[in-house]
Design a protein around this nucleic acid. Structure first.
Lengths: 157, 157
DNA sequence: TGATCTCCGATCAATAAGGTCGGACTAAGA
DNA sequence: TCTTAGTCCGACCTTATTGATCGGAGATCA
């Protein structure tokens, strides 16, 4: 439940790897190819390729073709958020089906729906969480985020 | 992406409805049956039944059999958290596959995994969010939760 | 210019979710 | 007490999404 897809996991790993290589070398031009990442993390090569293609299409990384080709981060690591990565791979993220209703389509329960409003609030919170964390933050391993609730503290499981 | 399943949505609607009926009447003994909920929210009857069965098995609601039977909340609305509801329906919730590793099984990438630690932090935050919000909170429609981040404020999309 | 290495789009299989059906039980009413 | 109607309960099937794969097009370096 609420699990990321494999593709999303792979995307995060790959981006973290690319970012680490660039930062480590201090050379933004160093490209890293699909095979290198796939072998490092035991990811199916062709699937990872597809993931990277998608990321490139969404302008999170740049693709360099031909021999010695590969991928490079399109922006600085601190300018890429987790939310952006996930949205690139899986489309707009929303907890509920009715989050991104276009006119005409709406859920059968919309009229008497009693959970729409509170769920949208939860969704906003999750989105803030993911959009406030960047690729840069994932590198260091430092504590990042705190949550405060105005009600219902200390509910035992 | 990150979407709740239909079953989870139905569970939340049903529980909210049951809670509302009880609170509204002030009578904790008032039972509400599957059919009533299904018709109110246009939910497939048999599927909703299955959801309610699961909730009953997990002791979130009590089932009363026979004519005039139905379901009643097993506890007060403020003692039931969103996290508990979701876990009842979908099993333990975790963002990553490696969240609940039992000994022996582990993901192929575990050894060189570079995103495990930060993702577990995100997961904890989401869990806190869901576990700090109760069924009671969903009734009022009042603002509930705030998030603060220590880094990376104001990242534009 | 040739060959090799890369990215790219379309296609197929596996898993999980969504939905459905019939049976067993309980309790109220005659 | 017996009947009967209404309820919960468990197993089954269908559909949609995800995971994984294959062959082709483009570009670069020798």
């Amino acid at each position: 439940m609420l699990k990321f897809s494999k593709k999303a996991d792979y995307a995060l790993m790959a981006l973290q790897h690319i970012a680490a290589v660039q930062v480590g070398d201090g050379a933004p031009g160093r490209v890293v190819n699909t095979k290198e990442i796939a072998e490092e993390y035991n990811i199916p090569l062709e699937l990872l390729a597809k993931v990277l293609q998608t990321l490139a299409k969404n302008a999170l990384i740049e693709s360099h073709n031909g021999p010695k080709g590969g991928y490079v981060l399109a922006r600085r690591a601190r300018q890429i958020t987790i939310a952006q990565i996930l949205e690139s791979i899986e489309g707009p993220l929303g907890i509920t089906d009715c989050s991104h209703e276009k006119d005409g389509e709406f859920c059968m329960q919309r009229e008497h729906c009693n959970i729409r409003t509170p769920l949208l609030k939860v969704q906003d919170s999750v989105y803030q969480l993911l959009n406030n964390m960047t690729l840069q933050d994932m590198m260091g391993g430092t504590p990042l985020i705190m949550i405060q609730s105005s009600t219902a503290q200390g509910v035992e499981r």
